[in-house]
């Protein structure tokens, strides 16, 4: 691989943009297609499919064997609420390789003693989220139970096209949330993207079990039905 190609690939990753390196297996010839260039590429259909799945692999085109190295940005997890579940969730998510940020304006909750090894923003979502930078490689879990904190964060996540948006709370709590978001002008389709009650139904009881169910749902969404927008 030419050093300048490798360098561009690394720069795209650092800027959190996807890119695909195409290698001709017979000739060794290579080219790099950046996310913005995919649409106009002769292999657009195949490349878009690859970006969706995030999977590298071989592709046969007119008798030539091409290898596609798909580089998707590292997945971010933004947790709204420095609560008990978040304390279990943060280290487990980091173990999965997720880039974790916790947002909570309540400084009693968002203290470094409670969250020693994770990025912590003691600010309201409206102020914190632009600093985090939400995108379609971001998952959000809203866990405060407090509409003043959760609702604006959820709306920002839906608007940014986050691949996973989940909210803690019972069906009844969610029904009231749907009413509030509808009144705030969020469409039914967008609201339908919210995973609520949050997490896979594994009968989770303890904070760590709930964290596991949330992370399992995040991974399932990432790997099986991520819809880029």
């Amino acid at each position: 691989m030419r050093l300048d190609l490798l360098s561009t690939l690394n720069a795209e990753r650092a800027a959190r943009r996807a890119a695909i390196l195409i290698t001709d297996m017979a000739s060794g010839e290579q080219r790099l297609v950046r996310e913005v260039e995919v649409r106009d590429d002769p292999l657009a259909v195949e490349l878009e499919e690859r970006l969706r799945s995030g999977k590298s692999g071989l592709l046969e085109v007119e008798g030539r064997q091409l290898f596609l190295t798909v580089q998707a940005p590292p997945v971010k997890l933004v947790v709204i609420g420095a609560v008990h579940i978040s304390q279990a969730l943060a280290p487990m998510a980091q173990g999965l390789g997720l880039d974790v940020t916790i947002v909570d304006p309540r400084t009693a909750f968002a203290s470094p003693e409670r969250f020693p090894d994770v990025r912590l923003l003691a600010a309201w979502p409206d102020e914190a989220l632009p600093r985090v930078g939400l995108d379609r490689y971001t998952a959000m879990a809203a866990l405060t139970h407090d509409p003043k904190i959760d609702d604006p964060a959820l709306m920002a996540a839906l608007q940014a096209g986050c691949f996973y948006v989940g909210a803690l709370g019972s069906k009844k709590t969610h029904a009231r949330r749907v009413e509030r978001l509808t009144a705030a002008g969020v469409s039914a389709t967008e609201i339908g993207r919210i995973h609520a009650p949050i997490g896979l139904d594994i009968g989770a009881v303890s904070p760590a079990e709930i964290a596991l169910s949330i992370l399992a749902e995040v991974v399932a969404t990432l790997r099986t039905d991520r819809r880029p927008r």
Binding site: L3, L9, N10, R13, S56, L58, F67, Q71, P74
Partner: peptide, 25 residues
């Protein structure tokens, strides 16, 4: 991660080391 490895490959090469990249295809 595999992307961290690519970043390291670049820094090794820029430091003047001969570098090969192996990829499971």
């Amino acid at each position: 991660t595999d992307a961290d490895i690519l970043a390291t490959a670049e820094s090794w090469r820029r430091a003047g080391r001969g570098v090969a990249l192996a990829t499971v295809v």
